[in-house]
């Protein structure tokens, strides 16, 4: 039960930061910029060893936001570097995030085939 509460609080807080960025900075910030920012900062924090503690604390509260996706990329890369060096730096990220990326493209395509935009 407590895992749900921390997931709610931390996940909510991460989204709150995104909202503040959108509302308080220049209006040219689009959802695309937010997504790019979160994945990049998540990957960076993960590399500095700062994201894992948040994941340990909040579980899905830290992995569901897109910064968690960046974390997955970096952790996959670091693990692969240990195993296969330079080649791992290139292949590790995609290997670790393959399920998410492929699912997004597959479901995206299927949804586009099945549904029409309603406006």
């Amino acid at each position: 039960m407590s895992s749900l509460v921390t997931a709610f609080l931390v996940g909510g807080a991460l989204c709150l930061i995104g909202q503040l960025v959108m509302d308080l900075t220049k209006p040219a910030i689009t959802p695309g910029h937010i997504l790019v920012g979160y994945i990049s900062i998540g990957a960076l924090l993960s590399g500095l060893g700062l994201y894992q503690p948040l994941v340990d604390l909040a579980g899905a509260g830290a992995t569901v936001p897109l910064s968690g996706f960046g974390h997955t990329l970096t952790q996959g890369t670091l693990k692969a570097v240990e195993e296969s060096g330079l080649l791992g730096a290139i292949s590790g990220g995609v290997e670790a995030s393959a399920a998410g990326i492929t699912a997004a493209i597959l479901f995206g395509y299927v949804a586009a085939v099945l549904f029409d935009p309603k406006g």
Binding site: L14, G18, M22, V64, P65
Partner: peptide, 8 residues
């Protein structure tokens, strides 16, 4: 807003 943008 960001509540439905930031999550995956």
């Amino acid at each position: 807003g960001a509540g439905s943008i930031v999550p995956i």
